[in-house]
């Protein structure tokens, strides 16, 4: 089994707690009674059929979506309507989107330095140094002065990851980061994510890249119809899924 980077988390403190979280879109019950504890440094992969609520779940963690019942605590701060709390949490949580969402009117460098300068009040020079070192890490420092529209999808997504890292977040959320990419660009993005995982970043990743899950995840969560159906370390999860729905889903995505 390729659980080479799995590490001991039994003594790590918990950084995200979800208790009885419920959310409805009108009549549609998109999240029902979600309970989840994420430990510091834990790498979680969330999978499930479309419409299962997996994206909604991670979008609730930084309040891009509002949950209606239950508690979400991130790094000791409880999410509520209090704008201060939301801003505090967003400063600690980085997010990478399926469609990159880079700002097309700003250069790559300006995309990266925007939040550090305005949210963290970092001096411009320092922010640019941080940005350049992160661009080197995602292996595209030479693109710093181009605009997002001039880059390939894979490059844009790597910039988006670097942009999120610029805020030195404690937690990274990935919302299907490779789904909008051409197949030949998936690997370059996954490589960056694997590297990040090895450095001990707390990650929640919604993805169907089961190879990635096998390589780095500490825990795989399967969601269906707004519920967490099954979860466990990848070795167990892939070898003997207990639930019928999990088996069906894995059968569909692994044998195609």
């Amino acid at each position: 089994m390729a659980t080479s980077v799995a590490h001991d988390l039994s003594h790590a403190p918990s950084v995200i707690q979800l208790r009885g979280v419920n959310k409805w879109y009108g009549q549609f019950h998109v999240l029902s009674d979600i309970n989840l504890d994420v430990k510091q440094g834990e790498r979680i992969v969330i999978c499930g059929p479309s419409g299962s609520g997996k994206s909604t779940l991670i979008r609730c963690i930084n309040r891009l979506e509002e949950h209606q019942r239950g508690d979400i605590v991130v790094d000791g701060v409880t999410l509520s309507n209090d704008v201060k709390n939301i801003e505090t949490i967003r400063r600690e949580v980085g997010m990478v989107f399926q469609s990159f969402n880079l700002f097309p009117h700003l250069t790559i460098l300006d995309n990266l330095t925007l939040a550090p300068i305005w949210v963290k009040k970092m001096p411009k020079k320092e922010a640019e140094e941080v940005a350049m070192s992160l661009l080197k890490r995602v292996r595209i420092p030479e693109q710093a002065n181009k605009y997002p529209g001039q880059l390939s999808g894979g490059q844009q997504q790597r910039v988006a990851i670097a942009r999120a890292l610029c805020m030195r977040p404690k937690i990274m959320l990935f919302d299907e980061p490779t789904s909008a990419l051409d197949p030949e660009m998936v690997k370059e993005v996954l490589d960056v994510m694997i590297e990040l995982a090895k450095e001990g970043m707390t990650m929640l990743c919604v993805t169907h890249e089961m190879g990635f899950a096998r390589a780095v995840a500490d825990r795989v969560i399967f969601m269906d119809r707004g519920e967490i159906v099954e979860q466990g370390p990848p070795s167990e999860f892939f070898a003997n899924p207990r639930n019928e729905r999990t088996r069906t889903f894995l059968g569909q995505i692994l044998h195609h």
């Binding site: 891009l64 967003r90 989107f97 700002f103 305005w118």
Partner: peptide
């Protein structure tokens, strides 16, 4: 959403 997620006011 990207602007929100960064913590911009």
């Amino acid at each position: 959403e990207a602007a929100d997620a960064m913590g911009l006011t």
